[in-house]
Design a binder for these strands. Structure first.
Lengths: 129, 129
DNA sequence: TAGGTAGTCAACCAGTTGGTTGATAACCCT
DNA sequence: AGGGTTATCAACCAACTGGTTGACTACCTA
């Protein structure tokens, strides 16, 4: 699985998002993190492993404790990806408005023209999971 | 499953992200979308259903075709969530720098003090899946 | 009206996920 | 040395995911 997929997948769980949210205001041990939830410590530990494999979190060692630290930088590529396509779709929308206005001014048959695009041929970054 | 989880989960797959990327530059039919991939039309149709349940995409009806349209607005809450915690962690990091500088100026034992936080007690938005 | 095209639905399968319990490791403190 | 904490590891389980194939529906067109 690629990095971006791992990050999105890691954040696709309410408990894990809550962990990230809490870690944003400071490091905490596994037991501290686990306390509020109605699930076993092991389950929380697993959630933290998922976050760790996604690079969202790191643990250092301090006696028996394993203080967890949020690595917030890795959120940046995710935001970038989202912004890229949000913006692109928005731009296209505005261009569409312009095109429609122009068509209306000319003579115009409806939106079918907008719809016929040259077939693209890009592969996804990696199709397997 | 909550909305945010559905959206993150929908984007946690390279094929689905590629679909979103391609749809950002214009609507397309299911067959058009499926063409580049080495998987069945049904598989792509399933991916589109996932995107649709997440609200990222809508289909209209046009003869036999089902042109798919990207609903880019729903990306906004995701970006918002990410930005909130990225920024919060960043702020804390800078505050930490300040604190450490001050401690160093005073006398200071290491970062253990930063570590002891009052135990929080918030539940995640919904723990079940 | 018959046939091709576009798409969905249903059943199935292997692998992953999110949780459980029990055992074990590593460390601090008497 | 022994006991209590903190955390991980391992085995297990039910539910979900991402893919397959086959059958079906809906529509256009000759």
């Amino acid at each position: 699985m690629d990095q971006l997929s791992r990050t999105f997948a890691a954040l696709a769980d309410p408990t894990r998002r809550d962990l990230v949210a809490r870690l944003a205001s400071g490091d905490a041990s596994v037991a501290e993190l686990a306390a509020p939830y109605a699930m076993s410590l092991q389950a929380v530990s697993k959630h933290l492993s998922v976050l760790e494999r996604a690079g969202l979190v790191s643990k250092r060692r301090e006696a028996q404790r394993r203080p967890v630290h949020l690595e917030a930088e890795v959120l940046a590529p995710v935001t970038d990806w989202l912004e890229l396509y949000r913006r692109r779709a928005e731009d296209r929308y505005q261009r569409l408005d312009a095109v429609l206005a122009e068509l209306a001014a000319d003579e115009a048959y409806p939106q079918t023209a907008v719809f016929a695009r040259p077939p693209r041929n890009n592969q996804p970054e990696g199709t397997n999971r």
